[in-house]
Design a protein around this nucleic acid. Structure first.
Lengths: 375, 375
DNA sequence: GTGAAAGCGCTAACAA
DNA sequence: TTGTTAGCGCTTTCAC
């Protein structure tokens, strides 16, 4: 009794026992907690039936059970506040109903939208979501994939760094349902849900050209490993070529986003190429810097320089002038990825290896029109 | 052989078997997959030792093991590409190393920052993160909490809807480590990591007042269940009272964000109170609408109306004029929540029931200065 | 230094 | 209609 109180007192004060004593205490506490956990056996004995029957009833297999026993069991479960242990269930059934998702960048609001799509779909379909953030680091990505495998997730949604082909291959071979999003990883028996980046880029540049721009530059971020990078560049080039420009006319600025001097680089670039009258910016984070650069040079949008930016954002329409953007169906991408993944989890004969391509859309605002009439 | 090829052919074509046949196939596939899974027993037999020894070695208990056997085991594990089953491990040890997090709003970039803090910390400390989104729905919140309990997560980070006090109480009583973030839920033996919203609001309004504003209004979002709502309102009132204003001078607009006509309501409000020369906006989403409203009325920021907004965002400095904001340490909040939660998981005597309060900061830009000189 | 055996909480084939 | 029993893959006493 005394000990009890003393322990409790110390406990309340948050006192830390010396290691060994603390360990003993912890073990003791653990044991107590475990003893308090109510299992299916407790429900069974309380209801006076076997564990099997309880399991059956609780899983909705009433078909061969008396209404009376069913009620007894349900009551017992409620009274004991029984909550089944998903771990044990999963260990037995080899099904966790968990989906693992590897993101590479939490900062960009685009990914929040995607995440929302995945999360919503998981919930609707009875899955839980485990997420982690590779931060574009292939080593971290690899570690997380292993982690997911150990945890026996039912499937993985992966925004690949695209620098771990060996791992992706192994993963696909392991038959663990897998879907790549946003970035293409070809030739694997895995689902792909991606955007049509060539089209998006082409649309953007076409729009600039149609508005009378004659020297359209592209500002590219710095990840040439990934398909959207290649495709947006390609789209830019295609648009120019289709409008009778030559490869010599390509005006490409590749910036290192990590370094944080995008603005400086842009100013430099614009000074070296004063003929530029339009910029296609390939992502929303870049765009902010580009706009700053333009303003800092005393140029005006859209009069001096028109701009179209990839990625619609909440703030695009509130900028001055309101920004013309390429919107991508991020939420849809998330939903489709999750839904298809779950399909292939629940039906192993579900068609795998297919690629779903989503269409971006041009949202016209005021950052391209009203070009300064040339002399 | 023939069957094999046929099945394979159909499989590749994504043909769906009739239900019963499909079930048989799936069961077959499942069995094959399970047979292929390499367990600790496989490693043991390959290395010619018992499971016990393998377990010991793989968990770093070399102390009583020959270097030779250790190597044999390590090699066997590598050759078989053995990956331990975390489910079984957890079932036995009653420890999942999973933290569950309930968010209420994925759309607001503030939460992405918090999530990042939590995620980073979990990774560093060897935990995985399971997230879900209550969308401010208490029923969903309740369901997710139950889900987490069934999954035996080691702890929960909760952004409470604040409408489930009964559940919170039960959760706290269950001794499952728990931390509330951002919104206070008092009197429970759970950690709280929150912001000083009174101070943030007071700072914002003080700033407006110091810049010569005389009629400062507040635009409040519509969730009066939650502590930040009360505290921001309180901060606004305190600031006015401390500057010799009377309660009659309070100018409060409460808007229903869901309905989506914040802009309209704001315009209405401004028309009814034309003397207003400053607005304190209580969250970043609201602010956009308020700014639109002001612009639409032909008023100019900051000349006619000054504005300070809660929540710093990437776009605040790019607006015209650049927005003065209250920055909140969201990333820090995430980190602290996770770190303290994990502390209390790993040391049950860790002080519980404490509240950590983080300080917001005023970021001064140009949306308050240059007031129109009054006649 | 190593292994046999029990058991974490649950499900499901097979009996009764 | 219900119960017995044998595991799922792992850790951990307790022997040897």
């Amino acid at each position: 009794m005394l000990t009890d109180i003393r322990i409790k007192g110390i406990f309340l004060l948050g006192y830390r026992f010396p290691k060994t004593v603390a360990n003993k205490r912890n073990k003791f506490i653990k044991k107590m907690v475990m003893a308090m956990k109510v299992t299916i056996a407790d429900v069974a004995s309380k209801a006076g039936v076997s564990k099997t029957t309880v399991s059956r009833v609780l899983n909705g297999n009433f078909s061969h059970t008396t209404e009376a026993t069913k009620q007894r069991i349900l009551n017992a479960a409620k009274e004991l506040d029984y909550s089944p242990n998903a771990l044990a269930k999963s260990l037995k059934s080899m099904k966790t109903n968990i989906i693992g998702m590897v993101l590479s960048n939490l900062k960009n609001p685009f990914w929040t939208t995607v995440l929302e799509g995945v999360e919503d779909t998981c919930r609707e379909l009875g899955y839980n979501l485990m997420i982690c953030n590779s931060n574009e680091d292939p080593t971290v990505e690899e570690q997380f994939i292993k982690e997911f495998q150990m945890r026996q997730v039912d499937g993985i949604v992966l925004h690949p760094t695209a620098q771990n082909n060996h791992i992706y291959q192994k993963l696909a071979d392991s038959k663990l349902p897998l879907v790549f999003i946003n970035r293409r990883v070809g030739d694997l028996s895995a689902l792909n849900v991606v955007m049509d980046n060539v089209k998006g880029a082409k649309t953007a540049v076409d729009h600039l050209l149609k508005n009378g721009r004659e020297k359209v530059a592209v500002v590219l971020y710095d990840n040439r490993f990934v398909s959207p990078w290649r495709e947006r560049k390609e789209g830019y080039q295609k648009a120019l070529l289709a409008n009778n420009f030559m490869p010599e006319d390509f005006l490409v600025l590749e910036v290192d986003q990590q370094k944080g001097n995008v603005k400086k680089e842009t100013i430099q670039f614009l000074k070296e190429n004063p003929e530029i009258d339009a910029i296609f910016s390939t992502n929303n984070m870049l765009t902010m810097e580009v706009i700053e650069a333009i303003k800092e040079m005393g140029l005006e949008i859209p009069v001096d320089i028109g701009i179209v930016s990839y990625d619609e954002t909440v703030w695009a329409r509130h900028l001055t002038p309101p920004l013309t953007t390429i919107w991508q169906p991020g939420y849809e991408m998330g939903r489709l990825a999750a839904r298809n993944l779950i399909n292939s989890i629940e039906d192993p004969s579900f068609q795998t290896g297919q690629t779903i391509i989503l269409e971006p859309q041009l949202i016209v605002r005021e950052s391209c029109g009203n070009i300064k009439s040339k002399v």
